[in-house]
Design a protein around this nucleic acid. Structure first.
Lengths: 154, 154
DNA sequence: AACAAAGAGTACCGATTTGGTCCTGTTTGC
DNA sequence: GCAAACAGGACCAAATCGGTACTCTTTGTT
């Protein structure tokens, strides 16, 4: 668990395709056939991304969508937010820091909030361009991350 | 979004209470009144944590639950796993790395998998003891994390 | 001016997941 | 032998998710 929903996954797949030639205009129909995803779903996702300011839409014949900004300037955090709403591990966090329903929980809730910040920062630092790149095999840095997070919470 | 579910939040709250005096035996009823959470829910959560090996249960009168290990040796990742199952941002990741249904997505899916690893490591490095501590105000390390994750994905 | 391509908006639907309850065992201390 | 306390389910309503469908509006082309 600790899932992102499927539409967000689709969204990154679609956007990474668009990132290959950012200036171009892509129609929902073309993107759906290219990625092998159901057309109405792709259309729905594109609308949400446009509403979130990640894409600009062009109506009418020969219309379509194109990236609102260079792929380096679009973060995965933005994609998630556009599709799923604000990134919030717990109800408490989404509530905007106001007192939770169960006040005795708040001690841990604040720590969840810290973890949430770490994740959010991480997701903000990963751009669409990064996400479009092929897989790199070895990631020595990865092993360090755990330690660093620990020190952030201790 | 990108939520943990409410039971997991409850679980950390309950466990952090138990971490204050780890040797003691706590009954479900007592924990529920102490935290102000519905008794059947607390009971359900405790059973799952016991099944996950985080708690040991003692049946019969004067029974109850106690931590299976010191609070420093129980990670938040384990708590999430015990309550929600394996940590997997996407379907593809949970599928165990086998080919996704939508093969063209796999390029991004592998990158999601990388992010998943980073999150998993982060959650593994935070112990129940850390989670029980009061909030520390400044976290200079936090700002670094973004950069580190970026380099892990680039 | 008319038509067709394409997005905007929204309602809807079935399946699954969540959050939570309840009930019937079984174990064990007193 | 009784009562406290966990084990293990079944069960249920409500929300969410993944996906479809339909009606508008805009706009390039002829």
């Amino acid at each position: 668990m600790l899932r992102i929903n499927r539409e967000t996954d689709y969204a990154t797949a679609i956007l990474s395709l668009m990132a290959e030639a950012p200036e171009e205009r892509y129609s929902a129909a073309w993107l759906s056939t290219e990625r092998g995803l159901p057309a109405p779903v792709v259309s729905k996702i594109l609308k949400q991304l446009a509403k979130g300011g990640l894409l600009v839409s062009h109506r009418g014949a020969k219309g379509g969508y194109s990236l609102a900004r260079p792929a380096e300037d679009i973060s995965i955090a933005e994609v998630i937010t556009a599709i799923e709403g604000p990134i919030a591990l717990t109800d408490c966090i989404e509530g905007g820091g106001s007192a939770c329903q169960y006040s005795p929980l708040c001690a841990v809730s604040h720590n969840w909030s810290r973890l949430n910040d770490v994740f959010y920062d991480a997701l903000r630092s990963v751009s669409l361009k990064d996400m479009s790149k092929p897989l790199v095999k070895e990631h020595p840095v990865l092993r360090e991350v755990g330690q660093r997070v620990k020190s952030a919470v201790s």
